[in-house]
Design a protein around this nucleic acid. Structure first.
Length: 417
RNA sequence: GGAGAGGUGGCAGAGCGGUUGAAUGCGGCAGUCUCGAAAACUGUUAUCCGGGUAACCGGGUCGGGAGUUCGAAUCUCCCCCUCUCCGCCA
């Protein structure tokens, strides 16, 4: 969420941001609430100051064994007024913080303004021609069927449409990819490996911005107010809720493997077959906590770490700088990594690398203490997939297929298989 | 699932209706001493909000919320969490 003081002092910047993100929202209500809030605070605090003084006096009288009854009587009406104002104050606070949760982060100035059509491809890597096949290419859907590595029939039977059941080499490939990515980031890129629970509570989901806006997209448990995580970003970022980092401990870098659960409500009928859009998928996620002045450099290196996965897997990919209207609610800047699938003749997003600046940190109160001033300050949070599994499998299947329908496995995975 | 104990400052740990934002110890920071360090001594050391250019002033915060009271860390109720024992169990 944004800083209320910042909104008060820079309403035009916030309005510009809303416009760039194509969010229709009136700041007037918030600004009015803010003003009323400060009025109430001033009145109630003056009364409380009076009450505190009177209480000291009463205390002194009692100690001196003198009569304090008249003073006590006087205080009753003041106390009632205080109670009334306090109630109004906390109501305003409640409304205000609810309103604030719906204001998106302001896009960074370096990104294109506009909708998805303004997204900018800033880099392409690799050979987009298939490596081994010369004839007609199969799609990953066809390959999954013929190879028997993934069964959507069993998945549907067990759960429903959009759920998978990996079999044999498919299951092993999935596990190999997870281990390869974890090892790369943990051993070579300096991330600390963590493994969170896959179910979190409402506060955690709100902390990273999934709630309240996207509750319909989340799986929620029936008997407890718990949610299945849609990404490891949620537990890993929230792990430092209410923490104060030492300056020298930043940047703090985490890598985590988790399955990710998404209802994909509203996308029925889209990519219904194959691996592209499923309700549960594996992902290795990178999360960083950084000093504000370094966060954009950290975003670049985070992206480079994610790209390295694709390069080692020899998968052709491109980097897309997302336009203001296409980045997520909480992000200030975001790069998508997309791999080329020559069978489907499509680009598939396998990673989103974002800098949230202090937007999430303010919600979950993560700070660090500056050495020079001794003061605490909000950190910047970043994350990116490093990378998402099923679409990477699409890339491997479609790029490494042979004319006979078999698949060549990328060299880097050999030790894992 | 049953029974009990407990949640206080960075940590440990007092307080159990009225100068208690909170004793004391440890830690941190600065200074004295020292060639330097240790020890010792002295000082300092939470956070949020409002007003103010600022110095500063005021208010809130003892797991969270509600209540009793002129006044709550202290009393009552609800919720959350942690620990111990029993049961169950991979």
């Amino acid at each position: 969420m944004l800083d209320l003081k910042f909104i008060r002092e820079n309403p035009d910047k916030v309005r510009q941001g809303l416009q760039a993100k194509n969010v229709k929202l009136d700041l007037g209500a918030i600004l009015a609430l803010d003003e009323e809030r400060r009025k109430v605070i001033q009145e109630v605090e003056a009364l409380k100051a009076e009450r505190n003084k009177a209480n000291d006096a009463i205390s002194a009288l009692k100690k001196a064994k003198q009569d304090a009854e008249s003073k006590i009587g006087e205080m009753k009406s003041i106390s009632e007024r205080i109670k009334l104002l306090d109630e109004r104050g906390s109501k305003i606070d409640e409304e205000l913080s609810r309103e604030l949760l719906y204001i998106p982060n302001i896009p960074h100035e370096s990104i294109p303004v506009g909708g998805p059509q303004n997204n900018k491809v800033i880099k392409e890597w690799g050979v987009t021609k298939p490596r081994y096949a010369t004839g007609k290419l199969r799609t990953h859907v066809e390959l999954c069927d013929s190879l028997g590595w993934v069964s959507s029939d069993i998945g549907s039977k067990l759960t429903g449409s959009g759920w998978l059941f990996y079999k044999g080499f498919g299951a092993r490939l999935e596990r190999a990819l997870i281990n390869f990515m974890l090892d790369l980031h943990a051993k070579k890129h300096g991330y600390e490996e963590v493994s969170p629970a896959f179910i979190v509570n409402r506060g955690t989901m709100t902390g990273t911005g999934q709630l309240p806006k996207m509750e319909e997209d989340m799986y929620r448990l029936k008997d407890e107010d718990f949610f299945l995580i849609p990404t490891a970003e949620v537990p890993v970022t929230n792990a430092h809720r209410d923490d104060v980092f030492k300056e020298e401990d930043l940047p703090k870098k985490y890598v985590a493997y988790t399955p990710c659960f998404r209802r994909e409500a509203g996308s029925y009928g889209k990519d219904t077959r194959g691996l592209a859009r499923i309700h549960q998928f594996d992902k290795v996620e990178l999360v960083k906590f950084a000093k504000p002045e370094n966060s954009y450099a950290e975003l670049e290196s985070l992206r480079a770490d994610a790209e390295k996965v694709l390069e080692l897997l020899e998968l052709p990919y491109r980097v897309v700088l997302l336009a203001s209207g296409d980045i997520s609610f909480a992000a200030a800047k975001c790069y998508d990594l997309e791999i080329w699938a020559p069978g489907s003749q499509k680009w598939f997003e396998v990673s989103s690398c974002s800098n949230f600046e202090d937007f999430q940190a303010r919600r979950i109160n993560v700070k660090y203490r500056r050495k020079d001033t001794g003061k605490t300050e909000l950190v910047h949070t970043l994350n990116g997939s490093g990378v998402a599994m099923p679409r990477t499998v699409i890339g491997i299947l479609e790029n490494f297929q042979k004319d006979d329908g078999t698949i060549v496995i990328p060299k880097v995975l050999e030790p894992y298989l």
